[in-house]
Design a protein around this nucleic acid. Sequence first.
DNA 1: AGGCTAATGACAGCCACTGACAATTGACAA
DNA 2: TTGTCAATTGTCAGTGGCTGTCATTAGCCT
Lengths: 210, 210
Amino acid sequence: MNLRERKKRRTRDALLRAALELFATRGYEETTVDDIAAAVDVSQRTFFRYFAGKEETAFFVPRLAETLVVEALRTRPPDEVPLEALRRAVLESWDAINEAVVELVPIELHLRVYRVIESTPALLAAHLRRSAELEEQLAGIIAEREGLDVDADPRPRIVVALFGGVIRVTERLWSTGGDLTLDGMRELTTTYLDQVGPALAGNWRAEQSP
Amino acid sequence: MNLRERKKRRTRDALLRAALELFATRGYEETTVDDIAAAVDVSQRTFFRYFAGKEETAFFVPRLAETLVVEALRTRPPDEVPLEALRRAVLESWDAINEAVVELVPIELHLRVYRVIESTPALLAAHLRRSAELEEQLAGIIAEREGLDVDADPRPRIVVALFGGVIRVTERLWSTGGDLTLDGMRELTTTYLDQVGPALAGNWRAEQSP
DNA sequence: AGGCTAATGACAGCCACTGACAATTGACAA
DNA sequence: TTGTCAATTGTCAGTGGCTGTCATTAGCCT
């Protein structure tokens, strides 16, 4: 990698970190693109040559994570049942995610940004849309594993939708809760996934009384 | 309702219809607020006095629908099991929705706008965020019906998340498919909801072979 | 060293949206 | 009916995100 490319990567990383740092401290809406550019001492125009928009900086790390989850699902043993494959793919990709993220951004900063995403309407909306796209991908992989046509058989999209729903509920709880560790997330996720059966089961009240 | 109020409602309705008409024909991104204001012959500033933003016009009808669904769930007989209550609330509120919408906007226009929402990234994102908020409300109602604390017991949020996932998959299929009738939607929804059990069931492949 | 190409900055402009102030128009009492 | 008050609207100016254009700079390669 020659000087030119090294310089480019340095500028991009600097912009990324400056942006996330500002988002985490000052808030997303309160940070202007000019602020970010100024923090790295480049022109605003240059910022837009590295990122398609302010939003893209906020989702740089999540995008990485998604890639790894997709990859993890693709390499799951084909004998696993769909829900099981999804569960394990997610749970086991977190270590890889963690590793990849640290290269780019202090993990603690990412966590703070994650809370900003969940609490900023514009970012939450973008996050949900991205999740929907991820789910579409995952459904495709599941269908392939099972030898099905995604458009003919509704089950792949349904499981993934169910799974995604649980993940999102979990994410929100985790991001607003106190325990911001990886293991905390893992634990929450397994607990919640185990609730899918009971939640669908007919009468909750009947189960409560002995 | 005096002249002043009548005039206001007329302006708002005109803006709303003009906006939706433009979105449906020209596309959302391609229509500017100035276009909408010009179509009704008011200033751009006036548009923003009636709607918080361009987006709000696109979601005016969906907002109405959401209100009616929430209401429908609230009046469901308390002996129904959660998933059943949700299903019936949604299926049975469509008539009421249909009725309320026609007052405001030709139903055919609404359907065209709905497709624009699903196919415009910015609007899809907003739509998903609104859905998440709706789900939070529904979870609260379910918890109340069952005498539970939403934050202590995960099941209300889980069922609603599952349910919402299925609805969204259905919506997308419906909006891109050919049959844009109410009954088509109803039928698709019931079919898909009936797939939740099978989709969660362990081994799809085993079930396929006799 | 010098020409080539990619990266950057400076500038102008579009669009969504907001605050401020003045002009207009309906409401209501005298 | 008219005059006053309050609500509605238009105009203007400004901010922030984002894009196109063009000249300048800086690394690359022979």
